[in-house]
């Protein structure tokens, strides 16, 4: 028993303190911005993190995905609706109707699925390029910016597959909206 206690304490010290502190030191020395959470700062104030989505409810902003936690980054999660749960179908129907009202001229079957589904984390910073493009007429009307300009902006903000292969093409909603406000 005593022998076990000794070796466990040695491992506790090595794995629970020395290792994470070594990683911490190296990460903050080599990549301080990323190690701190890729924060966006504006004149000393934190405006968010590049990696964490924000809630966009105003019509003049591109909206992101559904988030049952309203993009509160103190936590994370979703409602975990099963495919067969009727609440899921109901939420989706309501969201489709609301989207069609806010975006007149859009056809129901053209709405990309990612825009009206809850992300796993509730903090997904991205939408698909199609989900951004479908909002262009609304933003154009709200802001008086030509649709062509907006489409170009989306193209600039689109991240391709990583290394040309991995993942999906996507647009960071926060970064897109920030570039809108800078216009």
């Amino acid at each position: 028993m005593f022998k076990n206690l000794r070796i466990v304490l040695v491992l506790l010290f090595a794995c629970g303190l020395v290792y994470p502190l070594a990683v911490n030191g190296a990460a903050n020395l080599l990549m301080p911005e990323k190690a701190n959470g890729s924060l966006i700062e504006e004149s000393g104030k934190v405006r968010g993190s590049e990696l964490i989505g924000q809630a966009f409810n105003e019509p003049k902003y591109f909206s992101g995905r559904v988030s049952s936690i309203k993009y509160d980054g103190a936590g994370s999660g979703s409602n975990n609706y099963a495919a067969s749960n009727e609440e899921l179908a109901k939420r989706t129907k309501d969201d489709i109707n609301a989207f069609l009202v806010a975006n007149p001229g859009v056809k129901k079957e053209d709405i990309p699925a990612d825009l009206l589904t809850n992300s796993g984390s509730g903090l997904d910073p991205h939408i698909s390029p199609l989900a951004a493009l479908i909002q262009v007429p609304r933003i154009s009307k709200e802001r008086g910016i030509q649709e062509e300009v907006l489409r170009k902006l989306i193209k600039e903000q689109t991240e391709g597959r990583q290394l040309g292969i991995f993942g999906e093409p996507r647009v960071n909603v926060l970064m897109l909206n920030r570039s809108l406000d800078e216009k």
Binding site: Y81, T92, K108, E109, A113, T117, N118, S119, D124, G167
Partner: peptide, 28 residues
């Protein structure tokens, strides 16, 4: 995709995206 959502009117061309992240999509 999820046929219940197809029924509700949401295209399932992207696959079953509820609970998934855009950067990973269906494959990842």
């Amino acid at each position: 995709g999820n046929m219940a959502l197809q029924e509700a009117g949401l295209s399932q061309e992207e696959g079953n995206m509820e609970g998934k992240e855009v950067r990973f999509g269906i494959a990842q």
